[in-house]
Design a protein around this nucleic acid. Structure first.
Lengths: 217, 217
DNA sequence: ATATTTTTTTAGATTTACCTAAAAATATTT
DNA sequence: AAATATTTTTAGGTAAATCTAAAAAAATAT
């Protein structure tokens, strides 16, 4: 068993490490955890002693097999609780992240399994992220950022890569929610802002925002 | 905000202090928390600095108004989660205590409120304990221990004062579940064991067990 | 009323998870 | 390649929550 803090670090390393499982730098990890580099080093050492991560000083950190397994189970619980909060307790998609950050640490494989069944074995969470099954298997969907689209191209919003309330509330206000079709009307040369058509109306998003909107064709 | 540990101590003091709110001794508190007296003293000092308890050295500890409010909200969450686990996730009444001990610390009044609504504002948890409403109000039912009944008297099982899996599994096996009518057939002089009639059959429970079965008339 | 036992508190250590400041290693400029 | 800047680690310290051992207070027994 791990502490909450250890679990949060594992999750952070998993996310920062990406699909290609590249080493995560101490600074990146510290920033993600909103702490200092020295604290990150401390924790990495502890996780290393527990064989959850591999760490070569100055060369960054990667998860071991057992670290990945652990991280994926926490992510599974996080996403299941998000579905519960939205589908059953009528929370909005922008209100569930912080609560799920707490609930994900409840330690009971049976609970996760029962919750999964109760929710009807959902495939994705309210932000479009895939939910690992009890064995930890899940497909990473091939989504890409909205800012990769060219003028006149179309796509479907299928995910977001940022879960803050402020960001999600903004998308909601513009009508940019999961499943919506969009079409790129124009890309401003000045700062890369994107004008797009959605539900027949036009909306503009900054380049920074567009990066965190994920699209499938 | 309190730490998990502080919350657990508050809850322990609330329960040990009883309906008459009498002071709780350091030893009793330490025993309940499965820790040492010195640790309990330390924690009591910390809670005292936060004005959650009143402590006169060597004279025991009582909750302040604010301590009671805090404890009752934790108990509310504990009992709501137990209802959720039994009613929605099909856990048995003997499987939910430890999970609820973790879930009760999730810090969100809105979550508690939504959960309450989702469950249909239940009045009692799976063990017959009353669930405080969001203002912290609840009726203590006037239940008494089974061993207070005399030969030939009858009653209805409406609660238990012990929540361990072992105890509850045993009751389940004997058919001694909430809502059942019982009649005292005999009380053994030797050790106070009680023979009772339930659903037409006879069962015997030790005096120790009978103390933790709560009855209404 | 004194002695003994029990309960409670204090003193001093330990572990986790953080911090700041300084040193060491690596990366980037010139 | 040397100088400078950045990143990472080490060293030493703090607060929360625990522990053991010893001291102090209260309760009980003689």
């Amino acid at each position: 068993m791990q502490t909450f803090s250890e679990e949060n670090y594992l999750k952070a390393i998993f996310h920062l490490s990406g699909t290609d499982k590249k080493p995560v730098s101490t600074n990146a990890l510290a920033e993600k955890m909103k702490t200092k580099a020295s604290s990150a080093t401390d924790m990495v050492k502890r996780l290393s002693e527990k064989n959850l991560v591999e760490h070569t000083p100055y060369q960054g950190v990667t998860l071991t097999e057992s670290g990945i397994r652990s991280a994926v189970q926490i992510i599974r619980k996080h996403r299941l609780w998000e579905v519960f909060l939205v589908d059953k307790l009528e929370f909005k998609w922008d209100e569930v992240h912080d609560l799920a950050e707490e609930l994900e640490h409840i330690n009971s494989p049976i609970l996760a399994e029962r919750l999964d069944a109760f929710l009807g074995y959902p495939k994705t969470d309210p932000h479009g992220d895939p939910i690992p099954d009890k064995h930890g298997n899940f497909e990473e969907y091939k989504m890409f950022s909205l800012n990769k689209l060219n003028k006149a191209e179309t796509g479907i919003i299928t995910g977001v890569s940022e879960h803050s309330t402020a960001f999600l509330k903004h998308l909601e206000k513009l009508g940019l929610t999961l499943g919506k079709n969009i079409e790129i009307v124009d890309i401003l040369e000045f700062d890369g802002s994107i004008e797009l058509k959605i539900d027949g109306t036009h909306q503009t998003v900054s380049r920074e925002i567009s990066k965190h909107i994920l699209i499938s064709k």
